[in-house]
């Protein structure tokens, strides 16, 4: 009896030591799940999900405080990827958080801009350059299209311009020759 208890205690101590040691030795910095979720999010930093940026949303999802369908810029595909990562069923985007729009960049009408710098402060990725009483301009390559600069502008000089398809950005479409089509065109 005593021997059995002794063995169990010894075992417990030994295993506990191993566990404790590995907890220190293999400590994972930060929250790896939030990290992985963050990698899927489009980094628009638009806040449509109700969180101040993609990272906080990722952390909220990781903690189970937010649903996976609150990111319109990520679209259905983003939801699908998140569902895959988290092992849950994908669901349609929550319309309450907005609907997906074509990818756009902000454009400042330089004639109207009064140089108030309000948009510069609103931009989550510092993609607007300019200074007080100076005309501002968008660095199009860095703009995520989050639209956060639109509301603060006192003169409404910012508009969202959808990214037009040009040669370097052109993509091959999914071939539309598939088998069901025969049914539709030649249907018996």
């Amino acid at each position: 009896m005593l021997a059995a208890i002794g063995v169990m205690v010894l075992l417990a101590v030994a295993i506990g030591l191993v566990l404790g040691w590995s907890a220190i030795r293999f400590k994972v910095e930060g929250n790896p799940l939030a990290e992985k979720i963050d990698a899927i999010l489009p980094q628009t930093q638009c806040g449509q999900c109700g969180f101040p940026g993609c990272r906080p949303y990722a952390e909220a999802i990781a903690k189970g405080e937010a649903d996976i369908n609150q990111c319109p810029p990520g679209g259905e595909e983003g939801v699908k990827k998140l569902a895959e990562l988290l092992g849950v069923e994908p669901k349609p985007l929550d319309e309450a958080h907005g609907t997906p729009k074509p990818k756009s960049v902000a454009f400042i009408d330089e004639q109207t801009c009064i140089g108030c710098t309000l948009c510069i402060q609103a931009c989550p990725v510092d993609a607007i350059s300019g200074a007080a009483k100076q005309m501002h301009t968008i660095i199009a390559a860095e703009c995520t299209g989050c639209e956060l600069c639109l509301p603060p502008c006192p003169v409404d000089c910012i508009s969202m311009v959808p990214i037009a398809e040009d040669l370097p950005h052109w993509k091959w479409k999914h071939p539309v020759v598939m088998m069901k089509k025969i049914a539709e065109t030649e249907g018996a």
């Binding site: 489009p42 989550p124 860095e142």
Partner: peptide
């Protein structure tokens, strides 16, 4: 061709997202 251009586009998107994250 479709798959290749889709992969390239996604890589481009990923680079853009990484840049945005970094800047944010």
């Amino acid at each position: 061709r479709y798959a290749k251009s889709e992969i390239w586009a996604r890589e481009k998107d990923k680079r853009a997202a990484d840049l945005a994250r970094e800047r944010h």
